[in-house]
């Protein structure tokens, strides 16, 4: 009951702000910038929408079970994407574990074990720079080292390893951030009980950082699935009439298959390419959703 009285007192304490022209100017400025930012968002959304509509109207008619289960063909009606889907999966079988082990291992070393000196700083800087290197350069690296020097040929193994290198910097940086986000109080608590570095790492820090690490890994993998240039470089095939059955098989992947279809003159192939893009997009969307789900469900709020 005393509340209204109190309110009145508070209001009386602050004299009303003069509504002068300076105030109006600031409000106007505020509105203009809000408009500009909203416009930017609208523009990107519009572009995305146009792209999606175009792809769906072109591709949806060709998207059927037969398309998913047929090999590529000279004949647009019979062409399918099966070899590319299976090829993409095979490549992930190589890329995912290699990139995870190397990337997370590097992150753990840099965050927990590396001494703070010039050499560590140099490594750190180079990892950040590597993330910005054009993917075609990684293709060149893969071609020289895996395909030629280690004579793996144009195999799933060579392609998968190249992709692992490509996404390594992203995984390292994301994992480092996840590890760093575990508060130092956790470390102090564990060390304070006589735990060794390894015990602290393995039992406390790693489990707490794992959701972040996994999210980073999945997002990096979805980048690898969409990459084309490095695989063209190492010579993944565009026409394959068999399914890869081990890591030494030759293979193709979805973006290469799509690229191949779009570069043909016949219009039907462009529609098939659109159908392929829908499949690829669905896969990426699924992976990103899983990443977001993991982040929301398991991320600890400290």
């Amino acid at each position: 009951m005393a509340l209204p009285e109190q309110d009145a007192a508070t209001v009386a304490d602050y004299p009303e702000v003069e509504d002068n022209s300076n105030e109006k100017k600031r409000q106007l400025k505020n509105k203009i910038f809000k408009g500009i930012f909203f416009g930017a968002v609208l523009f990107s959304l519009l572009m995305l929408l146009i792209l999606l509509v175009r792809i769906f109207t072109q591709g949806i008619g060709f998207l059927n079970w037969e398309f998913m289960t047929s090999f590529a063909s000279r004949n647009a009606d019979e062409a399918g994407i099966q070899a590319a889907i299976v090829g993409t999966f095979w490549m992930m079988v190589v890329t995912a574990p290699v990139a995870f082990v190397l990337g997370v291992g590097t992150a753990v070393y840099l965050e927990e074990y590396a001494p703070t000196n010039k050499f560590t700083a140099l490594i750190q800087m180079n990892i950040s720079n590597l993330a910005g290197v054009p993917s075609i350069v990684f293709g060149l690296l893969g071609l020289t080292i895996f395909v030629r020097e280690l004579s793996m040929g144009r195999s799933v193994l060579a392609g998968g390893l190249t992709m692992a290198l490509l996404i390594l910097p992203i995984i390292v940086v994301a994992s480092q951030e996840a590890i760093r986000s575990v508060p130092s109080e956790m470390r102090e608590a564990s060390f304070g009980m006589g735990a060794t570095k390894w015990q602290t790492m393995f039992r406390i820090i790693f489990p707490a950082a794992l959701p972040g690490i996994l999210t980073g890994n999945i997002l990096a993998l979805s980048r690898a699935i969409g990459e084309t240039a490095p695989l063209i470089m190492i010579g993944a095939l565009t026409y394959i009439a068999f399914l890869p059955d081990n890591v030494f098989s030759q293979f193709t992947v979805m973006p290469i298959q799509i690229f191949n279809w779009t570069s043909r003159p016949q219009e039907e192939f462009h529609f098939i390419a659109a159908a392929g893009i829908i499949v690829l997009l669905a896969m990426l969307l699924l992976m990103n959703s899983i990443a977001v789900w993991i982040r929301n469900k398991f991320q600890q709020r400290f």
Partner: peptide
């Protein structure tokens, strides 16, 4: 040394685990 000398911090800092797992952390390690 740290096994003989326990420490309690300014900000409560339990591990993001169950109550049980928090208590057995020391004995386990």
């Amino acid at each position: 040394l740290r096994t003989k000398v326990g420490m309690v911090f300014q900000k409560p800092n339990p591990f993001p685990k169950s109550i049980y797992e928090n208590v057995v952390y020391g004995p386990r390690i």
